[in-house]
Design a protein around this nucleic acid. Structure first.
Length: 464
DNA sequence: TCTGGGGTCCTAGGACCC
DNA sequence: TCTGGGGTCCTAGGACCC
């Protein structure tokens, strides 16, 4: 029924994981920069008709203003507050300065957003940490953050795992420090509502409640198989581990980006297809710029639409090779939008690119000093794509023919990599995408080539 | 006075391959 | 010739987080 004692408790024996959370971050930055707002109700978020609250200052929270509430409701609850649109460039700068303070403490810092991060003290070589040690470290860090940010306060939680640290940082906000002693995790969690566990939202809480589970203690008693029946396999097993405080997830810096997207909710619903196409094109350009800035490219283009009744739909299509080209993304977006039902108008349109893994995009023909050495073979475009994977790539009647080949390219600042490339010639001009043909080889090239293991590039034969 | 924008992860079904 | 199991890829949707 319940958990074998051996599974209780987590791998770490010190409360060496910190979770740092800046207090009412956006609002605090606004109060920092405008002294007249200090001590006053400040609400940062969308200020238009369909805006929602990003952050409310503690003064505004007294009136029941909360994140994710519609700004209209916030205005009715707290009419005297200052309502401000967000200034993300400023927040990013402040965030950078704050994260730098954490990195001065430990090399292993995992930002979760602009205002939150995990810090791994064990990675800083600190061990045998007592509760007092960690409290002192947390207070020093808070002082450093205050200094570096021009007066912002943070709340810090610490424990033997990410879960415990995260929950602890919320218990004494604002400007607090809570350290949970090693060995007390399960009893610390037991009386809390299941919704304190990140990942348990309204839908999961509802399902759990139908199984009689309201607190984490209830969850600790629930059989894992029963839990999996209620909420699914992945969610169930991870919940079971979290609830019993056997959370050994590592702190990970530099998480890879998985997708890049832009979306916009309109002040009034839009029905005009031509207008939507133009907006979609502009969004494709914005996505493309952000991909290029991050030196990324991707294969899957997704268009998102939200109807007047808030139902949301996505349409996506995957290219044979990755692209960051605004024309390719824009054309795909337009095509996907044509397939979408917009009758009755839509309140939101979004364009995104995903499948960003293991590919390098570069402009072979203008940037590479080795461009002339890359063989090019011209082929006729097949009447029909040979399989589904190329279907998305050849954008229908626009394509005159394609070129493809294999070679290598000097990726900008990243060393030599082997690529397969394809060029679609369209009336709008050539559209090139290319792909790393041997991810293992490329990984070695990018990492400086210590790994001697030969890349396993052999073809798979029939194996049954 | 309805519900932002940026993401992540998971599920489920169908296509396709071996 | 029929049946099938496993794995991967793609698509659509949903839950969730800050």
């Amino acid at each position: 029924m319940s958990v074998p004692p051996g599974r209780l408790g987590s791998v770490r024996t010190d409360p060496s994981v910190l979770h740092v959370d800046l207090d009412a971050f956006f609002a605090a930055v606004e109060q920092r920069d405008k002294p007249s707002l200090r001590g006053k109700a400040v609400v940062v978020g969308g200020i238009g008709l369909r805006g929602v609250v990003s952050t409310a200052s503690y003064e505004a929270r007294k009136y029941g203003v909360r994140s994710a509430m519609s700004t209209a409701e916030a205005r009715s609850r707290c009419p005297h507050a200052a309502y401000l649109g967000p200034r993300f460039e400023v927040y990013r700068e402040v965030s950078k300065a704050v994260m730098a303070q954490m990195r001065a403490l430990s090399p292993l810092v995992e930002p979760l957003s602009l205002d939150e991060a995990f810090v791994d003290l064990a990675a800083a070589g600190l061990s045998n940490l007592t509760v007092d040690d960690v409290e002192a470290i947390a207070n020093d860090l808070k002082a450093a953050i205050k200094e570096a940010s021009g007066g912002l306060t943070a709340s810090v939680g610490a424990g033997t795992s990410k879960l415990i640290a995260k929950i602890a940082s919320d218990l004494d906000k604002p400007d607090g420090v809570v350290v949970v002693p090693a060995g007390t995790e399960a009893e610390f969690l037991a009386p809390m509502q299941v919704t304190v566990i990140p990942g348990v939202g309204p839908a999961t809480a509802q399902r759990l409640s139908m199984a009689g589970v309201r607190t984490v203690g209830d969850l600790q008693q629930l059989d894992q198989d029963e839990l999996i029946r209620q909420v699914g396999s992945a969610h169930g097993s991870s919940l079971h581990r979290l609830a019993t405080a056997s959370d050994d997830r590592p702190v990970v810096s530099d998480r890879e980006t998985k997708s890049v997207s832009v979306e916009d909710t309109f002040e009034t619903d839009i029905i005009d297809r031509a207008l939507l196409a133009a907006i979609g094109d502009r969004m494709a350009q914005q996505v493309s710029q952000r991909l290029q800035k991050a030196q990324l490219s991707g294969r899957t283009v997704t268009v998102k639409t939200r109807m007047h009744d808030f139902t949301t739909h996505t349409r996506s299509s995957t290219l044979a090779g990755p692209t960051d080209d605004p024309r390719v993304i824009g054309r795909m977006a337009r095509r996907l939008l044509e397939d979408s039902d917009i009758s009755g108008g839509i309140r939101l349109l979004g364009v995104g690119v995903s499948s960003l893994a293991d590919w390098i995009q570069d402009d072979l023909f203008t940037e590479s000093e080795h461009a002339a050495e890359i063989p090019v073979e011209v082929i006729e475009l097949p009447d029909r794509p040979r399989d589904r994977r190329s279907a998305g790539y050849y954008p229908g009647q626009d394509v005159v023919h394609t070129e493809h080949g294999e070679g290598w390219v000097w990726g900008s600042g990243r060393g030599l990599v082997t690529v397969r490339f394809e060029t679609a010639l369209t009336p709008a001009g050539p559209v090139r995408t290319f792909a790393v043909t041997d991810p293992e080889l490329t990984k070695r090239a990018l990492s400086g080539g210590e790994d001697d293991k030969p890349g396993e590039t052999g073809q798979d034969g029939p194996n049954d």
